[in-house]
């Protein structure tokens, strides 16, 4: 459906503060009607957002659609962005809400199918380097998968994950602990199954 860019894989790296400063500055300019600034903002954030969408949906086309929807929604909501506050939590809250609504619209959900079939990543058109973890993540309830992806994948600190999902930090911590325990159990089960 769409062409794959040259760079094959993208680890989540970079200083969150430096990223937040740059993104926030561009968002302020875009809020003033500067379309070039908005385009630059999309360019800077596209890898993280697309990666986040892909890890959540495990489908290249769906990830593309969701990423596009997140950025269009960002543009339409820029006027609501309070420039005095950090951009990243506000943006990821919007991204998380868009993701939740996007999932509600989709029937059936590829991740749910892949959870039944074994989402090793190859079905999604992209080879996974940690298929056991990908499988375990695919089986995780979205309520647990979202904070996991925001914290460990999008690299947001706990406070920002909490703001993004409108929860308290202790509630996010508890949810992350529970999610990791579920992943750990799932990984242990798949290891046992592999050794038998």
């Amino acid at each position: 459906m769409h062409a794959q860019a040259a760079a094959p894989t993208l680890p989540m790296t970079g200083n969150p503060d430096a990223r937040a400063l740059a993104a926030g500055q561009l968002a302020r300019q875009a809020t003033g009607g500067d379309l070039d600034a908005f385009e630059e903002l999309v360019r800077r954030m596209q890898r993280r957002v697309y990666g986040f969408a892909y890890q959540h949906l495990r489908d290249l086309d769906e990830a593309h659609d969701l990423t596009q929807e997140i950025f269009v929604k960002l543009y339409r909501n820029l006027a609501r962005y309070d420039a005095a506050r950090p951009f990243e939590p506000w943006f990821w809250k919007l991204a998380a809400n868009t993701t939740i609504n996007y999932r509600r619209k989709r029937v059936p959900m590829p991740t749910d199918q892949s959870a039944d079939q074994g989402a090793t990543g190859s079905e999604s058109g992209f080879p996974a380097h940690d298929p056991a973890l990908i499988d375990a993540l695919a089986q995780l309830d979205p309520a647990y998968r979202l904070p996991i992806l925001l914290h460990y994948y999008a690299d947001l600190p706990l406070e920002q994950v909490a703001q993004s999902l409108s929860l308290t930090v202790p509630a996010i911590k508890s949810r992350l602990h529970r999610a990791r325990a579920l992943l750990r159990n799932s990984l242990a089960e798949s290891e046992e199954a592999g050794t038998q």
């Binding site: 760079a7 894989t9 680890p11 989540m12 999309v42 290249l60 992209f126 973890l133 990908i134």
Partner: peptide, 15 residues
Amino acid sequence: RMKALRSPAPPASLV
């Protein structure tokens, strides 16, 4: 392991 998860590059047509 979760931090090391890799994702495909976004399609060139995205922006």
